[in-house]
Design a protein around this nucleic acid. Sequence first.
RNA 1: GCGAGAGUGGCGGAAUGGCAGACGCGCCGGACUUAGGAUCCGGUGCCUUCGGGCGUGGGGGUUCGACUCCCCCCUCUCGCACCA
Length: 826
Amino acid sequence: MSENYDPHALVDKWLPVWEQRGIFAAGGAADPRPRRYVVDMFPYPSGDLHMGHAEAFSIGDAIARFEMMRGSNVLHPIGWDSFGLPAENAAIKRGMDPRQWTYDNIEVQAESLRRLGISLDWRTRLHTSDPEYYRWTQWMFLRLYERGLAYRKASQVNWCPVDQTVLANEQVIDGRCERCDSIVTKRNLTQWFFAITAYADRLLTDMAALEGRWPEHVLTMQRNWIGRSVGAYVDFAVEGRAEPVRVFTTRPDTLFGATFFVVAADSALAEELCAAEARAEFEAYREKVSAETEIDRMREDRPKTGAALARDAVNPVNGERIPVYAADYVLAEYGTGAIMAVPAHDQRDLDFARAFDLPVRVVVDTRLPDPTETGIATAGDGALVNSGRYDGLRKEEAIAAITADLAAHGVGEAAVTYRLRDWLLSRQRYWGAPIPIVHCPDCGEVPVPVEQLPVRLPESGYSLRPAGGLSPLASATDWVATRCPRCDGEASRDTDTMDTFVDSSWYFLRYPTLLSETAGYDRALDREELALWAPVDQYIGGVEHAILHCLYSRFLVKALYDGGDLDFVEPFTALLNQGQVIMGGAAMSKSKGNLVDLQGELARYGPDAVRVTVLFAGPPEEDVDWADVSPTGSAKWLARVWRLASEIGGSGGGEDVASGDPTLRAVTHRAVEEVTRLVSAFRFNVAIARLMELTTALRRAVDAGGLSTDPGAVAIREGAEALARMVSIFAPFTAEDAWRLLRRSPTVHEAGWPVADPALVARESVTCVVQVAGKVRDRLAVPSAISADDLRALALSSDAARRALDGREIRTVVVRPPKLVNIVPA
RNA sequence: GCGAGAGUGGCGGAAUGGCAGACGCGCCGGACUUAGGAUCCGGUGCCUUCGGGCGUGGGGGUUCGACUCCCCCCUCUCGCACCA
C-alpha cells in the first residue's frame, strides 16, 4: 500500500472537482427528474460555525444527498440571516461598522461550510442585510401594509433608564439590562405591528396538513402559543362612564357568581375608571406595579394585590352592583384588559377575594367542598344554582343559553380570543431593514413607493447609541429628512427597523428566485421558479425556532397567498428538528467554559469523521453530548472503509456481478435494503451501524482470500462499491476517494444509490427460536418457507425443548413460521 | 400548576408485541511490533454450585409471549406559566 488515509488532504483534493463539475447545482425547468426542495435553517453569522451548525448541516446534507443519489433534482440552498443585534454590539464595542463584522463572519462561515463538504447550490447565496435582499423585505412589509396587516399603535417596550435606550426582549436578562445590569422598566412607545392575530384561526386549522410531517410537540407548542379560547364578551355598565366596559370570559355560565370586577392596573381603563377618592391609593399601587421587575412577576405563588377604584360595575344579568378593582393579575393585553371575577369557580379570583375579604358565591354545584371553606375554586361541571331562571342547567347548556340571552339583549356576544398577540416588529436598532414609511405633516403615514425601494440604511452620520432613547436611525438627521412621496413636502423617514424575524420569514421563498436567469432582480418572488420548487419539501433546523420563526413564516406565507403573491399556504411541508450539541450535560457557553471547538475537532479528525460522529451519536432529534461521543471511532471506521477500497483496487472489475459469491452478495443487498429504509426514516445512527457491519463483512471476505477467486472478487467489489455510494451521503470525501481507489470515475455522487435485489435479500434459511413458556430453549435452522405444521413438529422434537418441558403436559403451541415457536405447558 | 416527551450495560444507543443490549465508545486479553495513543483478532449486562437463574425506573394489568400496549407511582428533560 503506497498511500495512507489522510482525511485532510481529501478536502482539497475533491472540493475543486465537485465544484468544477457543478454536481450540486439544481437542474432547471427542463430537468425531468422529480424535484425536491431541502432547506437548512440559514445561519446567523456570529463568528465561525459551531458544532451545532455542523450537526444541523450534516443532517440536512445526508437528506439532500440521499435524494440526489436516488435520482431527484434537489435544490439545497444557502444564505445568511445577517441582520441583528450582535453585529451592532460588536460594532459598538470595537468602534467599527456592523457591516464589516457581519460580512467578515459570513466569509468565514461560507468557507467552513464549503470545507465541511455540504452539497449546497451556491447560486442561491443571499444575505438578509444586502440592500438587494432587504429591498424585498420592505416590499413584503408594504404588501401587508396595503391590506391593513401592518399598522402602528402605542405599546409597552423595555426601557433601560441608565443607557437611556429601548431594549429588545432578548437584551433583557432576568429583568435586567444585559449591558449595564440595571433594572429594566416599561415605556409606552408607538410601535409597528403585523396583524398575525387575524390569521390565528387559519394558523390553527391549517396544522391539519402538517400532522405527521412536523414533530407533534412543535404543533402542540404552536397550538398553545396561539391559545384559542372560546367564550363570550359581556358588557358591564360602570357608574360614571357612558359606554359599558366589555369583559371576556370562557365561563358565561358563572355570570351570577360575579362578586367583583377587575381591570388591569397598567391599563388606560384603570386610569379612567378610578374615582377621585381612590386616586391616591390607586396611583401608589400602579407605581408599585410598574416598578416590579420581571423577576417578581415570574415568582410563583405571589400574593394577589390590587387597589379598589371606588366604583361599581353593574352585572347585566341581575343588575347587581359589584366593586371595581385594579390589579396586576389581570393583563392589559389579553382579552379586553378587564374581567368579571367569579371567586367560587376561578382560583385566581378566589385568591383575590380572600385577600380582600370579598364575597364568594357558588353558582355551579360541582358536588365539591365549598370554596369559601377550602380556598379551592371549583372549575368543573355541574348544575347551576343561585342563577335565577338558569338554575338546573348543566354547564354547557348554561353557556349556550346565557350567551344567547346576552346577545339578544345587546349586552354581549359569543367570542373567541387568542393568547397570540400581534407581532411587534419595530426595533429601535440600526442593523435591520428600515421600515419603508415616510411621516408627512400633511399626509400622515405614507408608504415609500415600490420603485423607490430599497430604503437604504445610512452608512454614515448615525450614532448606534443616541441619547434620549432615540432609534439610531433618528440620529442620522440627513437620512431622516426626506420628501413626502405623495405631496412632495418636507417629511421624515420612519426611524425604526424591522425585527430580524421578518427577514427570516421569507428567505426560503427568495432562493428559487435567485436561480432564475430571466427574472433577474426586478421582483421579490419569481412565480415560475417558485412553482418548480416551493413549498419546502423538507425543512431542517433547531427546535428553538419551533414557535416564533416557524409561526411567523406560516403567517407570512398565508398573508402573501391572500395577496395573490403565492400559490400555497404552508411554507414547510415537513419539518425535522435536530437536537443540540451539548457538552458535559449542559448547553455550551463561554461562561461555563465547556465549548466544543468545531475547527479544533475538524483539524484533528477531518470533516467526514465529525459528520459521522454527530449522525452516529443517536437519533437526529436527540441532543448530542460531545462528552459522550467519540470522533476516534468514526475516524477509525472511515479509515477502514478507505483501506478496504485501497486493497480491493481494480479487483473484480469487468465481470458480471451475477457471477459473484452469492453469500456475500446477499449480505451486501440486505445492507442496501436496510440502509435505504433507515435513511428514508432519518434513522442515520442505525444506518451507519449497518454500514459498519457491511464494512466488517467485506473486511472478513478480503482477509479470507476472497479477492483471489473470481466470484469472491466480484462480490467484494459489488459490496465495496455499494458501501462507497451509501457512505457518500455521510462522509463524502472518504467515499469519493474510495470510489477512485476502486478505479471508478468520475464521482461517487453521480453514481446513484445502490438498489437491492429482492431475490438476494430473501433468505433461504432462518434461525427459529423455540420457546417453552416464553423462554428461549433452543434455536433451529429452518427453511424460511417452512409450513406451520412442519415447524411445530420440528420444535416439538427438540431435545432442549423437551428437557425444559420436563414431562409437563402441553397446553398449546404458538407457531409463527418461520421465526418462532412457543410451547406452553399446562 | 398545566401540557408534551423520555427512563434499557460503565457510556452513546439498537430491538413490525416474538432471540433484550445491534453498532460504537470504554475496558480486558491476544497478535504484529524497538515502541504503540497505529493496525488486526477475541472477550465484555448481573449472579452462578456452570445445570441454570435474574435482568429494560417501581408496582399492577392485558397476552401463549411485554423494553414495546393499558392503569397507578417515582425521576428527569423540554415547553407554557396569573391567558379570564
